[in-house]
Each structure stands twice: as structure tokens, then as C-alpha cells.
């Protein structure tokens, strides 16, 4: 199991590939489900230039570890890797990455969805957008996550 919070840009594909190579036993997993959440350039009908992700460091790390462990306990999976960005991000930058390995696909899909849905409603991160276009340079806090 691995949980990591990055304050700079990271490559989730490379991280997942490296973790799989270093940690998972070859031939033992039959499925790997990878979810990557990236920043969009449009929200609530407005153009968004960039976003700052704030977090509560001690609680965020603890909570992400709890989600990953809950997924390991609840589903028949072999391993879980969970990563998240903080700081300033730009459109198309990866924000969150959830990778789950299992013997069969159902558990990998189900556990992956469980992790991202829990993170969306409970992990202490907050987004502040910097707009562009007509509202250039104005800032606003994102008040709620989309339902999915």
C-alpha cells in the first residue's frame, strides 16, 4: 500500500508503473484498475486558468491512509496506491491517482471506485480557482464536488 501527497507536478502513469514493478509479484495479479483525475479548464460555465489545492497535511495523510486500508480490508485486492496533488495546478495536470491491483477485475474496479468516492467527500482538500476570460484573475473557492 502506498499513499503520497505531491506539492509539485507528478506523472501518475510512471508512478503506477514503477510501483507495480517494485511491489507487485509478477503473474499474481490479473487486473489493475487505474483512475486519474485531471484538472478541467471549465467549471460552472466559467473558464478556469489555474487552481490552488489546499490541504490539512496531518489529517489528509492520515485520512488517505485510512481510505486505502479500508479498501484493502473491504475488497479482495492485492494492493492499493493513492496519490494526490496540492499547490498550484493547471488544466490537464493530474490531480489524483488511484491504482488497484487484484486477481480478478471486479474487485479492482469496485475498490478503485470506493477509494475515489470516499476521497471526494471526506479527504480534507480544498480547491480555489483562478478564472480567466471576462473574470480574469478573480478567485473563488469551489464549494462542492460534482456528484460523479
Amino acid at each position: 500500500m502506498k499513499v503520497e501527497i505531491f506539492d509539485k507536478s507528478y506523472d501518475p502513469w510512471q508512478e503506477a508503473q514503477r510501483y507495480q514493478k517494485d511491489t507487485l509479484e509478477e503473474g499474481k495479479f490479473g487486473a489493475m484498475a487505474l483512475f486519474i483525475g485531471t484538472m478541467r479548464d471549465l467549471n460552472e460555465g466559467d473558464d478556469v486558468a489555474s487552481m490552488t489545492l489546499e490541504h490539512y497535511p496531518e489529517m489528509t495523510q492520515k485520512h488517505l491512509e485510512k481510505i486505502a486500508k479500508d479498501a484493502m480490508d473491504k475488497f479482495d485486492v492485492l494492493d492499493v496506491m493513492l496519490m494526490h496533488r496540492v499547490g498550484q495546478v493547471f488544466p490537464s495536470d493530474p490531480i489524483v491517482c488511484v491504482a488497484v491491483w487484484s486477481v480478478h477485475r471486479a474487485a479492482a474496479y469496485d475498490a478503485n471506485r470506493f477509494v475515489i468516492e470516499d476521497l471526494k467527500v471526506k479527504a480534507p482538500f480544498w480547491k480555489k480557482e483562478i478564472l480567466e476570460g471576462e473574470q480574469e484573475n478573480s478567485m473563488r473557492w469551489v464549494e462542492k464536488n460534482t456528484p460523479g
Binding site: I95, K120, V121, F125, W126, V142
Partner: peptide, 8 residues
């Protein structure tokens, strides 16, 4: 104390 979270 904090507002609803918006990560992910």
C-alpha cells in the same frame, strides 16, 4: 473547522 471538502 473547515468547509465541505473538494479534493480529487
Amino acid at each position: 473547522f473547515f468547509p465541505p471538502v473538494t479534493g480529487g
